[in-house]
């Protein structure tokens, strides 16, 4: 069942064969806690990849290292062959919690990411409005975060991290705090945005269905210390619909991922 990421890349066409993000032998400990051990994976340009795994297996740590917010003990992360040494605007991050600035309106929150870009005031405003519209929030430009629902706040956060056009979007359980119905809506929205903007996405989730519906590949992490236990290509055609979750192909993938997630470490 377990497929090495290099094998997966063989399936790809020639122009995508060079990974956008390449992670090799990443290890990280917090005191006695081995969060990650020997994690290797590749993300190819414009690919949508999910990482699933049990709670505490090191998913957030992995994302944080790729984002440049946490330093690894060993191993490397490269983007287009260049080692990551800190955070950068080539990688947008959507955090699990709501990270809007409460003193700014929705539009100002998006503009916050554009402050230092060589844009005029009007350009900044129109870019922000355009990205709010993209996530379905036209008309909410002047709302403060406290006036928005959880789903809306997370949509503003997504608009913000897309607004400065990073090549890579890193998301840590972006819909974890949302109810099931809103989650489905957000997944559809995210897939649409991804199709329109073509960017490389790494999304962490504990919702296997969400991983299958949105992703090209699903990576399964083992229990702590986290390793990539499996790398599964999702064979379903796009656009994917919610109804697909009843298909046998979907169910088969779902149960094998579920099994891998909970299987005790070898």
């Amino acid at each position: 069942m377990s497929v090495d990421s290099r094998e997966a890349s063989v399936v790809r066409t020639a122009e995508t064969a060079v990974p956008k993000v390449s992670i090799r032998d990443l290890s990280k400990s917090f005191g006695d806690v081995h969060a990650l051990e020997g994690v290797s994976l590749d993300l190819f340009a414009n690919e949508f990849v999910s990482v699933v795994g049990t709670s505490g297996c090191g998913k957030s740590t992995l994302l944080s290292i790729i984002a440049g917010l946490t330093e690894q003990d060993a191993g490397s992360v490269t983007v287009d062959g260049v080692p990551v040494t800190g955070p950068g605007r080539d990688r947008g991050v959507v955090f699990q919690g709501f990270t809007l600035l409460p003193w700014l309106t929705a539009q100002q929150n998006v503009q916050f990411a554009l402050q230092d870009e060589p844009l005029s005031r009007a350009e900044r405003a129109s870019t922000a409005q355009q990205f709010l519209a993209l996530v379905g929030l036209a008309g909410f430009e002047n709302a403060f975060p406290r006036e928005l629902s959880g789903g809306m706040q997370q949509r503003v956060a997504i608009a913000r991290s897309l607004s400065y056009k990073p090549q890579i979007l890193l998301m840590d359980e972006p819909f974890g705090a949302l109810d099931a119905l809103t989650r489905r809506e957000m997944q559809t929205l995210l897939t649409r945005v991804w199709e329109q903007h073509k960017l490389t996405v790494l999304m962490i989730t504990h919702d296997i269905e969400e991983a299958i519906i949105t992703s090209d590949r699903v990576l399964v992490m083992s229990r702590r210390p986290g390793r990539i236990r499996a790398d599964l290509t999702v064979p379903l055609a796009r656009p994917r619909l919610a109804a697909m979750s009843a298909e046998p192909q979907f169910r088969a993938l779902y149960s094998s991922i579920l099994e891998l997630v909970h299987e005790p470490a070898a």
């Binding site: 984002a67 440049g68 917010l69 800190g86 955070p87 950068g88 605007r89 990688r91 947008g92 991050v93 955090f95 919690g97 990270t99 600035l101 916050f112 990411a113 230092d116 400065y164």
Partner: peptide, 10 residues
């Protein structure tokens, strides 16, 4: 998380 956000925004 807000400080992390600032860092990721460069």
């Amino acid at each position: 998380s807000l400080i992390d956000l600032g860092e990721t925004l460069g």
